[in-house]
Amino acid sequence: MLPANKIAPIFLTLVAALVLSGCALLPSGGLADRAAAEEPTPTPIPTPVVAVKPTYKVQRGEIVHELEFSGRISPVNEEDLFFRASGRVRAVFKKRNDFVTAGEIIAELEIDSLERQLEAAELELERAQVRLDQAQQALAYQQKVAQTNLEIAQLRLAALQADAQPDTTAIAIQQKQVELAQLEVERLSQGVDPLLVSDVTRAELNVQKLKADIAEHQVIAPFDGQLLSVSLTPGQAVDAYKPVATLADVTELEVSADLISTQMQDLVEGMPASIILVSRPGVELTGSIRRLPYPYGSGGRGTTVEDLDKSTRITLDQSAAEAGYELGDLVRVRVELERKADVLWLPPQALRVFDGRRFAVIQDGDVQRRVDVTVGIETPERVEIEAGLEEGQVVIGQ
C-alpha cells in the first residue's frame, strides 16, 4: 500500500485530466458563440395606417321633421276617485274590474254618528212638515168659512137695502159686518204662520247638510264605467282627497301620453298623428291630437283634482272593434311637424360645430377648405342646407 503523502498528488493529477477531457468535448466557438446564436430577432415597427374619413355628397330631396313618442290606449273618460274627508274605511262594496252605475256607492268611511244625526234630523223634518200640513189644512177650512161668512153678510146687507122701508141703522150695522168678514178673508189669505214654514225649511237644510257630510265620507261613482283599480280594505285609514280608486268608461278609448315640455311646445291641438300598435307593428292607425295640457292646450286648466290631468290625448279614427286594440295596449305615436320638398340636405355627421359656428369641410380638387353653412329643418337622418353649399359638392365627414 502506498503512503498517504503519495496518494494525494496522484488524485489531483486524475481530476485535472478529467476536466481537460470534458472541455475537449464542447463545440467550437465557445460560450460567446452560443450566446450570439441565441439573441432574439428584433420586432419590426408597423407603418401607421392613415384613417380614411367618410365623404358625403350634397343631395336634393324631401325632409320630414317628425316627433315620435310612446303612449298607451286609455279611456277617454277616466277619473281618480277619493274621499273628501279623512277617516277609517267601514265598508268596501266594489272591487277591481267591477262595473258600476252613476251614483252607486263604492266604499264608505265610518259614519255611524252622522247616520244617527241624519235619522234624528229626518224625524224633526217629518214633525215640522206634519205641523205645517195641519196648519195649511186648518187654514183652508178657515178660509172657506170666512168666505162663506162674507157672502152671508153681503146677502143680508142686500136684503136690508132692498126693504120697502129701509132701516138705516140696521143697514149701517150690516155694512160693518161685511167689512169684518172681508178683513177676516184678507187675513187668512196671508197664509199659515211663517214660523211653521221656517221650521220646515230649517229642518230640510239640516237634512241636506248631513247628507252632504255623509257623501263626503263615501266614494260615489260619478258616471257609468269599470273600476280599473280599488286600493281599499275595511279598517284602513285614509286621507281626504287621496285617490283610492280609478273609474273609466271603457266603451270609448283613445291614446294617452305623458310628454315633456320640449315635446309639447312643438305640438298643436288638431294635428294629425299616426299610431302604431307595439303588439301589431304592421298595423298603422290614424288620429289627431285632441287635447294638450295647459299652457300648451286646453287641458289641465282647473285647480281641482279632477282637472289636473297633464297627459296629452290623441283621438283614434278607427274603433277598437275595427283595429283590434284593447285598453292598456302600448303604441308608438308619430306626428309630422314640418315637411319640405326639393331642398338640399346632408346627414348630421357631415357637418361640424366649433364655438357656435356650423360649417362643412369640402373637397375642392386636391385642397380641403371650410365653408360656413346655414341650416333649416334638422332630423336624426337629414339636415336641411339653406345656404353655403351647392348640390353635388363633396363634404368630408368627421
Rank of each mutant, 00 (worst) to 15 (best):
E151I: 12
T13K: 11
T201M: 10
G365S: 00
R332E: 14
R34G: 05
A273L: 08
L67G: 07
I171C: 01
E252T: 12
Q398R: 11
D167R: 10
L26D: 02
P194E: 01
I63C: 02
V15C: 13
Q398W: 05
L327Y: 09
T304R: 11
Q129P: 09
L14I: 12
L26V: 09
P234T: 06
P281Y: 04
A158V: 04
G103H: 14
P3N: 11
Q218Y: 07
R370S: 06
L123N: 11
D266K: 13
L157K: 05
P40M: 01
M271S: 13
S70R: 14
Q218G: 10
T312W: 04
Q134D: 15
V250S: 07
M1V: 08
V283L: 14
E78W: 05
L31Y: 04
R131D: 15
Q147A: 15
L247N: 02
E38L: 13
Y241G: 01
R88L: 06
A107D: 11
K209H: 08
V268H: 13
T374D: 10
K6Y: 07
E38T: 12
S261P: 06
L20H: 10
A121E: 03
L205N: 15
E378F: 03
A135C: 01
T41Y: 06
A107C: 07
Q137S: 14
R84W: 03
I7A: 09
K211G: 06
L327R: 08
E151K: 13
Q129R: 15
G30Q: 00
T168W: 11
G356H: 05
Q143S: 13
V361G: 00
Q117H: 13
V371Q: 00
V373N: 02
E386S: 08
L196V: 02
K209Y: 10
T169C: 01
H217D: 03
D342R: 02
A91G: 05
L389D: 02
V197P: 06
N149H: 12
E78P: 01
A387I: 00
V192R: 03
F99E: 15
S274I: 05
E386Y: 04
L308W: 00
G287N: 04
W345E: 00
V185I: 09
V375M: 06
A164W: 12
A153C: 02
T251H: 10
G287P: 07
S256N: 06
G324N: 04
A215T: 08
P194M: 04
V343R: 02
V353Q: 11
T55K: 14
R127D: 11
R313G: 00
A140M: 01
V49E: 12
C23A: 12
Y325K: 01
L259D: 05
D266T: 12
E108P: 00
E62W: 07
G388N: 03
L327Q: 04
P380W: 03
E104Y: 10
P54T: 05
S74M: 09
R332V: 10
I63F: 03
E184T: 07
P348I: 05
T101W: 12
D167G: 10
K53Y: 12
D355R: 14
P166L: 04
G356W: 03
V373T: 01
S70P: 02
P40L: 09
L292T: 10
T251Q: 15
